[in-house]
Design a protein around this nucleic acid. Structure first.
Lengths: 122, 122
DNA sequence: GGCTCTACGTGCGATGTGCATCTATTTCGC
DNA sequence: GCGAAATAGATGCACATCGCACGTAGAGCC
């Protein structure tokens, strides 16, 4: 898995795939809707993640000055970025299953269950 | 959630609950069976996590010199540690669901699906 | 002209991580 | 009986990461 980045990276990749193209300030308003934890995602973390994704060739950016307001650095996924998103999905699918197992095991232990399933008593 | 510790903390709590009492070197051999990611869990991280758990009152330890071999620092959960484990289960259940949603969304996007479900073509 | 909103960042101290290393005791091979 | 390996716990340090604060700048508003 390498680094966690508080799972900012995969969410950014997904959002970029979904929107086609976008920029930091815009993404920051939608990140929480797809976030994997309820921890707030810092703007600083977002900007740094985007730059890192570009350094690694997963996205490319260009300045957009046409519209109103300050210039925007607009990002879009590269082909490699799409593969990277797919890899994240594979990894997170695996982690999700592990977490489910953890939750099941924990609940069984804390409720003092044996291995058989049984309806909860009133 | 606070800190992630590469998810060492919750796994240690679960193992301690399961085994009743144990010590670092013993736990290190079983951690990978319950680990949430396939990243190797460093011994250093384990020892430091155990100490941190004790500082926060989630476990208590005592030296055991009776048996063969070098002295062992044997840990067991406190009542607070059990609650902490339960909290972890709640958090991870939530994260697991978020990850599942992420995986579903990603696969739909990458396969170019619309919203309807459909059997895979051969 | 000043205030607010949009937009992109950086600086820096605090914390966390990985790798290597250290100490000490016991057991095993021979 | 002696050295090697296993058991057991822990630290040192360089480096990465994180959160918070701060900095810069253009556009629109009144």
């Amino acid at each position: 898995m390498g680094n966690l980045y508080r799972f900012v990276e995969p969410v950014v990749l997904l959002l970029l795939k979904k929107k086609g193209r976008s920029y930091g300030y815009d993404l920051s308003g939608e990140l929480h809707k797809h976030a994997l934890t309820d921890a707030e995602i810092e703007r600083a973390a977002l900007y740094r993640t985007l730059r890192q994704l570009e350094v690694n060739g997963n996205v490319v950016s260009e300045w957009e000055t046409d519209d109103s307001g300050p210039a925007r650095r607009v990002y879009r996924l590269t082909a490699q970025g799409e593969r990277h998103l797919e890899e994240w999905a594979t990894v997170l699918e695996h982690v999700s299953k592990s977490m489910n197992r953890f939750v099941r095991d924990t609940k069984n232990l804390l409720n003092g269950k044996t291995s058989r399933k049984k309806a909860r008593p009133a």
